[in-house]
């Protein structure tokens, strides 16, 4: 082996090593981006699960309170209608979230209206449904926050150096976080409602 071929071999090894290292770094970044993207999808499905639970609860809730709440017919009808729209399969995603937000607002007003019906508040079945609804709303809030945290993490990764290069190669784009509505931001103190 001549000196020249020796040098060539060394530089080839260096080149190969460098390329391998780059490949490993690229793979690591690629995989972490995929993991973050999946985390977002997973968190989104967490929201979905709770929304479905809420859809399942509503008919039962409406049926229970209807006998007591004569003056809230309009509100109950609105809730039933919103639920029907929310579960219809051909609703686009953006509109669906609006419908769910409206449903949240309507359910909250229903829970406030309940305070005017002492008989209802003594109904064991209703109390059970109310606790379940509180549970779902609490889980829903948690799922939304988890989703927002996952999205923030993901957005940071696709905008920060050096993962932003890999992300643009993969064609990943920013996602938007859930904006809490005005009413939601003023955290409803459910405990307070119970004390009245």
């Amino acid at each position: 082996m001549t000196v020249a071929t020796g040098e060539l071999l060394v530089s080839l090894i260096c080149l190969g090593g460098g390329a391998l290292l780059l490949l490993v770094i690229f793979m690591a970044m690629y995989n972490s981006l995929i993991a973050k993207k999946n985390q977002v999808d997973y968190a989104y499905s967490g929201i979905d699960v709770q929304l479905k639970k809420r859809h399942d609860l509503i008919p039962n809730l409406v049926a229970t309170v209807r006998q007591y709440m004569e003056h809230e017919r309009a509100l109950l009808e609105r809730i039933t209608e919103l639920r029907a729209r929310a579960i219809s399969p051909n609703l686009p995603d953006s509109e669906r979230m609006q419908v769910e937000a409206a449903l949240s607002t309507a359910l909250r007003s229903l829970m406030v209206a309940v305070e005017n019906y002492p008989n209802l508040k003594a109904n064991e079945n209703f109390l059970h449904l109310q606790a379940s609804l509180n549970e779902i709303e609490e889980q829903l809030a948690a799922a939304r926050r988890a989703y927002n945290a996952a999205v923030t993490d993901y957005n940071n990764a696709i905008e920060m150096f050096p993962t932003n290069f890999v992300a643009s190669m993969m064609g990943l784009s920013r996602r938007t976080v859930f904006e809490a509505s005005e009413e939601e931001r003023a955290t409803p103190d459910v405990a307070q409602l119970f004390k009245q």
Partner: peptide, 29 residues
């Protein structure tokens, strides 16, 4: 688990086996 309350994040670090459950427990209030 990265939480949104900056004061809380400064004071504590949170680990959890479930991201959603951690937030179900650790509500803003």
């Amino acid at each position: 688990v990265k939480l949104e309350d900056p004061d809380f994040e400064r004071a504590f670090k949170v680990y959890s086996t479930d991201q959603i459950e951690a937030r179900y427990i650790l509500t803003p209030s």
